[in-house]
Design a binder for these strands. Structure first.
Lengths: 237, 237
DNA sequence: TAATGCCTCCCTATTTTGGGGGAGGGTGAA
DNA sequence: TTCACCCTCCCCCAAAATAGGGAGGCATTA
């Protein structure tokens, strides 16, 4: 790789603390001459972790207003696989426009490139680079660094997963094949009776699987069990 | 990028048919002097799609025996984020050993490197390179090409997503804020009564939201609605 | 061998959802 | 303004799911 990022990438494995992680985002920002570099994620139990160069005021404001729920970047990344150039998103709603204006007020650049990263167990992370630049300059930057940034995002995510593994090693519940089938059918919208028929067993038996799965998944009811099974990746719709 | 793969990567956007996709796997195999290059995936409705250089006999055998359910490579990739070097996997069970022997019988090389790729809506794909080689040679190969292969896998996946999008262009339903809240609470395991209390409205009203969301999502029941909301990304966690 | 986990079936009772109806007031866009 | 969509509330009743409790057979494995 010709890239300026080669040395940076090789240094990532040595990142061992959150402070160091934070420092890495700052280093990358300076190396690339950007305004912001941010990595953040949401894990399967809704905990959030982030490191990056946004001002703490903006982060606080963002969390306070629960912008996660309307941020077009989050929305775009959630629905796509490929990196998202902010300019390509739909900023037409009033709320989105106001959000963008406010973000820029808080020192966020007008151009951004966010890479969605998906891990096991429904893990979802975002790696963002941000700057104030013309459309043409930004295009050129993305052309030059887009692919490398994907690799950097992945390396960051690998690190973040290591941190989590150390913190909260949550054992993925292992459902039996029949339990998986039962939950899968419910996720597809079948009633218990239909699912039982589909599996060629009595509804009573099916119910036992659902209950077992519910307990293994730590779920409060069937809907919750299906939700957890989906978001932890034990079933695929 | 210094890599031999630069030209190859630039050609991927021109891939427009499944035959061409297949040809691309063969081209990559030849370019890198490998025995096999395989891309395959499972989408959100359980359809499978694959292209690669494994013999059709091995693919048939694999599907017939439903090896998907016990293949250690699949298992490893499901649980991890980072690429999997086959040698690092747990091949200790009898079934796994027999599986590996059989695979080699069918012309699969002893060394493999598989990259898990996760997309929106629960999409999960695997990109595998495979060869017969010594451990040291294989290590060297992965050192040299590992990162580029991640990019190649992503480009393949982008193409595969385009193919699917052409097939089944499903418009993402737009739920109202209250509908989203309602569905989110249910996904968290609350009953209608609890969710209503949480939202400060009567249970009757909440029910109206659930029903509206159900219809918008084309769901057969509440559980189905939550499942669809999660897997299409309209709600998080 | 004993233990564990899986698969299958059954009971009763209570609680929760689902599918139909309604009604009124608000906001935003064409 | 009219139209559409959102938010809020209410009725009834049938259907489905939930929470407990059982039981036996069949693998695998410690």
């Amino acid at each position: 790789m010709k890239s300026t990022l080669e040395n940076f990438l090789e240094a990532i494995p040595q990142v061992n603390t959150l402070e160091h992680f934070q420092a890495a985002t700052e280093e990358l920002r300076d190396k690339l001459g950007l305004e912001h570099v941010v990595y953040h994620w949401v894990n399967s139990v809704g905990e959030r972790f982030g490191a990056g160069t946004y001002s703490s005021e903006w982060v606080d404001r963002y969390l306070e207003k629960d912008y996660l729920r309307m941020d077009p970047v989050i929305f775009g990344c959630f629905q796509r696989f490929t990196p998202v150039n902010w300019k390509q998103l739909d900023w037409s709603t009033k709320a989105a426009k106001a959000f963008l204006v406010e973000a820029i007020d808080f020192g966020v650049g007008n151009q951004g490139y966010t890479i969605p990263i998906r891990g096991p167990h429904g893990q979802f992370a975002l790696f963002t680079v941000n700057n104030t630049a013309s459309d043409a300059d930004w295009e050129a930057f993305i052309d030059a660094y887009g692919r490398d940034l994907i690799i950097v995002g992945h390396e960051f995510n690998k690190k973040a997963l290591e941190f989590e593994a150390g913190d909260t090693a949550l054992p993925t519940p292992s459902l039996s094949p029949r339990e998986l089938m039962a939950i899968s059918y419910l996720a597809k919208g079948l009633s218990r009776a239909q699912a039982a028929q589909e599996m060629g067993i009595s509804e009573h038996t099916l119910r036992v699987y659902i209950e077992a799965a519910r307990h293994k998944l730590g779920a409060l009811n069937t809907t919750h069990a299906v939700a957890r099974a989906l978001s932890t990746g034990v079933i695929i719709v």
